[in-house]
Design a protein around this nucleic acid. Structure first.
Lengths: 210, 210
DNA sequence: CAGAAATGTTGTCAATGGTAACTTACCGCC
DNA sequence: GGCGGTAAGTTACCATTGACAACATTTCTG
């Protein structure tokens, strides 16, 4: 028999401690913020000794990297689903991607924050490396659906378009999470984050897409 | 006599410990990164006991907030100078502001990172509150030089323009600092950060400015 | 000049990340 | 079926850190 998760959960071995720790860590992250996240607290919540995480993650950076990796996978998924549900029109896809980006960040602010805190992550970790690639590809896939067809533009301008979209959406979301758009949101009568993001994206016209 | 900074520097009282601690903290920040910054290390570098900072900052958040405040003041200054040196043409000013934004972040990456780590800052601290206002005003002043004159657009669209510029530049800088633009920079032959930022801003056309 | 306030210091505490040495369970293999 | 190796957890310990209290030394002010 593989394991007996239903009954013998109090046994010496946990069964799937790694997953349990990640889950606990994410909970802490979203409930009490990133500074409340510690190896020991995660271990405590799972009911295991404070050195148990070491076997699965090595150190703090390990745990954070694995958690971020999981986040990127889910993130990529959300972006893809959002863009695909919007059909083939480039502008629709773009807007949908932006909304999905924002939606993920709002739903999982702690995780999102962690995902972009590179000094605490080990991007050479295989899991994270793969997840980052998946995420990048999802963004590109959603954005550059047809950006390439006007091939009379320079490679720089071409790359710039993609970077521009990434920067715009990412910047918006980051500023929002850091509470830097409070003033604007308050000054415009009935504007929530999504409305504002839509307007922000509308206020730009992307050469080659529009 | 006020104080004797030149000779009696070994006296019990430091003279200007607050400033010295801020300076030391910034050095740590830029040399060894934000995670290496601690109250005790800053105190150590200044050659003072580990609780001395308490008198001037209260706690860690206090030090970080004061440091961030100082950063925002310098940041605002840099943006203003950049935009003003570019003259009156809106597009020139915009581009200059973007360059100044990027320049500050590249020159003081640690400080810049700290400035946008709101969970470690106390934005209700007067010094930080003021500095934030100064920074915000500098950005707006550089961007919205003439954005208002087309007043046939809705307030939402109007606000969106400003937010769009902020988001675009901030997002670009953040992604760059987090090393997320490495791939793009490498794939475009002779592109450095400034070139790419220029191209990014060029790839957008702002209704009402252009 | 005396006392209050500011500025620094020593000593202590709890929490944390990390390491080492040991224990317990599991798994493959003969 | 048992045996040895390894994976998974545990206890014990250490250094670092932020915070606090009690105390010492200046400096300012009335």
């Amino acid at each position: 028999m593989k394991k007996n998760e239903d009954t013998a959960t109090k046994s010496y071995h946990h069964g799937d401690l790694k997953k349990a720790l990640l889950k606990a860590a994410e909970l802490i992250l979203e409930e009490d913020g990133i500074q409340a996240l510690s190896l020991r607290e995660a271990a405590r919540r799972v009911g295991v000794s404070h050195t148990a995480p070491r076997n699965h993650f090595g150190d703090m950076t390990g745990l954070l990297s694995e958690l971020a990796a999981e986040g990127y996978l889910r993130f990529a998924d959300a972006l893809r689903k959002g863009a695909d549900a919007a059909g083939d029109d480039p502008r629709s896809r773009l807007r949908a991607m932006g909304r999905a980006y924002l939606g993920f960040a709002i739903t999982h602010p702690g995780l999102f924050t962690l995902m972009f805190r590179s000094e605490q992550l080990d991007t050479s970790r295989p899991a994270l490396l793969d997840a980052l690639a998946a995420s990048r590809s999802a963004v590109e896939q959603a954005v550059s659906a047809r950006t390439r067809e006007a091939d009379d533009v320079s490679p720089l301008a071409q790359a710039a378009r993609l970077v521009a979209v990434r920067s715009l959406v990412h910047g918006f979301v980051v500023l929002l999470l850091e509470n830097r758009l409070r003033g604007v949101m308050a000054s415009v009568p009935g504007a929530d984050a999504v409305t504002l993001l839509d307007a922000v994206m509308d206020s730009l016209s992307f050469a080659g897409i529009d």
